[in-house]
Design a protein around this nucleic acid. Sequence first.
RNA 1: GCACCCAUAGCUCAGCUGGAUAGAGCAACUGCCUUCUAAGCAGUAGGUCAUAGGUUCGAAUCCUAUUGGGUGUACCA
Length: 590
Amino acid sequence: MKIENHLKEIIQQAFQALYQESIDAPKLDATRPDFEGDYTLVVFPYLKQSKKNPEQTAGDVGAWLKENSEFVADYNVVKGFLNLVISDAYWTSFVKENLMDMDAHLHPNSGQGEKVMVEYSSPNTNKPLHLGHVRNNLLGYSVSKILEFNGYEVIKANLINDRGIHICKSMLAWMRFGNGETPDSSGIKGDHLVGKYYVAFDKAYKEEVNALVAEGKTKEEAEKNAPILLEAQDMLRQWEAKDPETIQVWETMNGWVYAGFEETYTRMGVAFDQYYYESKTYLLGKDIVNEGLSKNVLYQKEDGSVWIDLSAEKLDQKLLLRSDGTSVYMTQDLGTADLKYEEHKMPRSIYVVGNEQDYHFKVLFSILNKLSRPYAEGLYHLSYGMVDLPSGKMKSREGTVVDADDLMNEMHQTAEEITRELGKIEGLSEEELFQLFEKVGMGALKYFLLKVDPGKRILFDPRESIDFQGNTGPFLQYTYARINSLQTNAPRWSFTQYDGSLEAQEKALIRLLHDVPQIIVQAGISYSPAIIANYSYDLVKAYNRFYHDLPILKEENQAKKELRLQLSKATAETLAACFEMLGIPKVEKM
RNA sequence: GCACCCAUAGCUCAGCUGGAUAGAGCAACUGCCUUCUAAGCAGUAGGUCAUAGGUUCGAAUCCUAUUGGGUGUACCA
């Protein structure tokens, strides 16, 4: 970071000295590995200033920098590319100044304590979590951690969709077919039990629809008038009227679901600072609609329904209040946005929600903008792609979902098989082994989902198990364990300083460690765990090469040995930080 | 119909605000454990970056069109 600023400044000075021209701070690239050098300046954009050809310009500037910068040890010119070789002295002094105590290095304070809310997970309480939810949870949690490393104060929020017609469907089916079944009586995890009745409802509903069609009704009529559906709708009205019996079933069944979710969340390693419940927020937002009407941001049709016209932004017209005065999803999201801000006054707020709701959030943010909410500028929809199966989209009703709990069990099991096959587990107790399989399994799953750019969809093929070799979570964990073992085997040592020359493998490693702060900042700016994941992989690759090619404990030169131990330690600490940001468990021995 | 997103090796993905001969992993084939953990390291093979134009000294990256895939567009949530 510092060296880049130095180079940018001194390059500007070079143009001043050589050509009496001032240029903007130049862009520097990392030199490609097949050329000699650390940083590369592309001189094409500056030929107007130099009035010379590319080779001459690069040569002039290179020579001047070598002469006038204490850090530029050498340079070479390939066509219009000026490759700068930074002195080993810079890198070794960087090790001394930044890698001994890495705390500041790993916590770039780009957020400066600013508050930010990350809303994620936001499940429905009528069925268990599936792989799509897993992606959401891991993304939301990871982004929260990344922002914390960037110095933000993060509020992790979960807005639970705990009411509505879909909840009533499970309730009704349970009342009708359940015979008082509970998680305790059946041994079924609460969220799965409720999900079972959601499916049961759908089955009964379809049967009724078919029966009505057989009686001669059209499909549309049948779908609207199936008795069980009418009953569910009636139940929703009773719920809204706070009918005690309905409320009691609702509370009981939601309680089962929460207990089940809590188990799954704990196992996934995600957590929340605050829960919002739609049962408490679903009536919010109507006063905002009135405010919008008085400000002429919204308009009312003759039937009384309220709309916003966003056709100027190519977003068409959107309903905000039905003609009977009841609200829609958008209305309550307006209200919840205000509520969150009143409570926390955070300048920035992130919604981790799938890309099928891109349009919804565009409209939501646009409305809040037009209503000049002070927080409107800081709203961001972290839109992520669906997790698809080879057969297409996951459909809970068609039974093609990959269940979160099942998947985690499978990951654990696969980790166990592979670990036992590899051996190396002597001396571990059964409990320790269980923990190891769990950590490795979760590491594989999390890395698999987080290494992909959030915006892109993920294809998950259940027939091909998630890898444990190559570009995977376990490879990262393995490298960490390797360093850990190295440190346990190392006799007492302490690094003070190293002034000698550096091997290519050492320099490659130092360079990666050097660049961590930019990586963390970049991941924060783009809300992308994938940047951390990919960096971790690069780091681990460089470390394994270093470890393979160079002796560490067996190095006879004491200063070199200590440098290598220090680099190993710094790599482990950096990896630990990456693990924390990705929510991947550390493994001390594997 | 309209809007938005995506298209890179057989498969799964990198490629930062345009920069040098487009990189990994998996799968295939070769080597490397009497040496600090082989879940590792090294190598071979594999690509007209969907297609066609354009902008530029320079395009996988920016613009336009086309093709192919996905999503959204309800007085549903």
